[in-house]
Structure formats: C-alpha cells, structure tokens
Design a protein around this nucleic acid. Structure first.
Ligand SMILES: [Mn+2]
Ligand SMILES: [Mn+2]
Ligand SMILES: [Zn+2]
Ligand SMILES: [Zn+2]
Lengths: 141, 141
DNA sequence: ACTGTTATTGCAAAAAGTTGCAATAAGGAA
DNA sequence: TTCCTTATTGCAACTTTTTGCAATAACAGT
C-alpha cells in the first residue's frame, strides 16, 4: 500500500474523497520536505496538472490542514507557508536573514501545560514561530 | 504635549516624518484598543481622510511596526492584525469561537531564555499566538 | 460494470495585498 | 517666511487570496 493510498483511506474514513489534485499537492509537499508557499505549490503543481487552478490550491491546503495532513506556519510577512505533517515542532526565524531552526515540541511542553492550567484553554497546535536574530546577524548589530 | 506629538518626536529623532496619515492610523489603533485588520483600519480611516489609499495603509502599518509603535499579530487564517504597542504580551486563540485571552510576557520569559541559550538566537518579538480550544468550546467536544 | 449522491473542482469575478514611479509635502536651514 | 531636500503619498497596474455557483467526478451501493 503506497503512501498516497494511506492518505486516501484516512480521508475516506471521514467521508471525504481522494482526488488527483490532493494527491499531487501532498506529493509536492512530501518530496519538498520544507515549507512552501501556495504560489510555489501552484507553480509546481500546474506543470504536472495544467487544469489546476489557484482556488483549488488554497482550498486543498485548508482542507489538508483541517485534516491534519499538512501544517501551516506563518512567516513574518503575514502569509502562510505549508509543510507535510511530521513530528511536532516549532521554529525560530531570523528577522534579518530569514534563517530558521527547528525546536522540538517537547521543549515547549511544560509551557503548554502551564498555559493550559492558567487559562483553561486546551492548546491543540504546534508549529509556532518565534522571531529574533540568528547568531550571525547579531554580530552586525 | 499630546499623545500624537510624542509619537512625532520619536519618529523625527530617527529621521522620519509625522504625517496626517500616520497620525490618523495611530489614533484609530489607539482608540480601538484591540487588534484591527488593515481592511478595518482603511475603512475607518477613509471616512476621516477620503484621499487615503490602501497602499498607504499597508506601508504605514509596516513602518509603524518597524518603529515599534504598533505590533502585528497573526490570526489563524494567515493574515495580520495590528494593535497599538503596549505592554509585552501573547495570545491564546480558540479555533472554534475565535475567543482570545492575553498572556503576560513574563510567563514566557523562562522559555525565551531557554530557547536563546539552546539556539544562540536572540528573540526580539513578543505577541505570539497559540491556538487551541477555549473552556467553553471544549465541552461540545 | 452501472447509477446516483454529493464532495470537489474550475471558472469568473471580487477582494486583499504589493510594487514602481512621478507628484506632493514635512520639516530643517536660511 | 521662504526655500530645498527627500521622505512619503497617491495613482495605476499587478499579484495573491477569497467567494459563489454550475459542472464534474469520486466512490458507495447495486
Ligand atoms: Mn516547520
Ligand atoms: Mn495583542
Ligand atoms: Zn540571520
Ligand atoms: Zn471557543
């Protein structure tokens, strides 16, 4: 059973359908292995599937997010980038050079528990972005 | 010396200028006291100042952010909202009802220090958003 | 394999956000 | 006050993202 079929049964179990568009976008994100913007995804996917349209890309990304197969992250500019869902993590992003490092979720686990206890909220999402200056960009001020 | 004049001297000290557009947008954010989207700000400001255009609103918000007078926050949808800069804080936002609570920055201070030590980054920004379910929305599932 | 239901897509149009550039005006200096 | 420099704005054009709706196609049931 291929990777795509696994995703397909997950979706069908919830009453949704697997389509070539969804398969393709999942494949692009899977093989990229990094964060991609909707525009980048659209450009790549369109080559493979010329009938594809932007609204489908945006709706597909929302759908896959909703179903836990991809995860959105925000960049400083207020736009989302997406990556295939994998282990829970967060990011530190440099305001100057854009450099980024991952932080395991377990580093934040205690904070999450504290916030939940103090507020009554249940925190469901990882993939938080913290902004700052990377070691290199601190030197030049 | 009025509130607007204070902002003005801050900007002039850095070689920038205070303009009616910047004054107005600062005033709107100041009197709103909450997060506003660029569209909301534009709509409000346009009534007071009909010659105002969208590019000016977006550029002004970037400029005021850059200069520490306003702070952007991101909502789940990947768009920014802005508020007048005040004490350092973060937010918990409910994925279901959109409800939101503030968290003092000092609750995260230790985590920030840990992240800085572990990564070498210097974290410069507060106003992080954590997503989850508010107490009310947890009951209905 | 065929059929029917309806989730999903493409299309068209709108809304939101961005960019380049010439015209304007803030504010320091005379 | 007037003049000059140049930061800032408005305009026009463009890109990105969203929305409504009719056409399509996934897939469960036969
Ligand atoms: Mn990531
Ligand atoms: Mn806030
Ligand atoms: Zn850097
Ligand atoms: Zn809620």
């Amino acid at each position: 059973m291929s990777c795509g079929s696994l995703y397909a049964s997950e979706l069908r179990a919830r009453g949704y359908r697997m389509t070539p568009q969804r398969m393709l976008i999942l494949h692009i994100l899977h093989s990229a292995g990094t964060h991609l913007s909707p525009t980048e995804i659209f450009a790549t996917a369109k080559k493979e599937f010329p009938r594809l349209t932007e609204p489908t890309v945006y709706r597909t990304l929302d759908f896959l997010t909703e179903n836990g197969l991809v995860r959105p992250a925000h960049r400083g500019n207020g736009h989302h980038v997406y990556e295939i869902a994998r282990h829970e993590h967060h990011h530190l992003v440099c305001r100057v050079c854009g450099g980024e490092v991952e932080v395991e979720h377990k580093v934040l686990a205690k904070l999450y528990r504290e916030l939940e206890t103090a507020s009554g909220y249940r925190l469901t999402d990882s993939h938080v972005t913290f902004f700052g200056l990377c070691p290199g960009c601190q030197k030049g001020d």
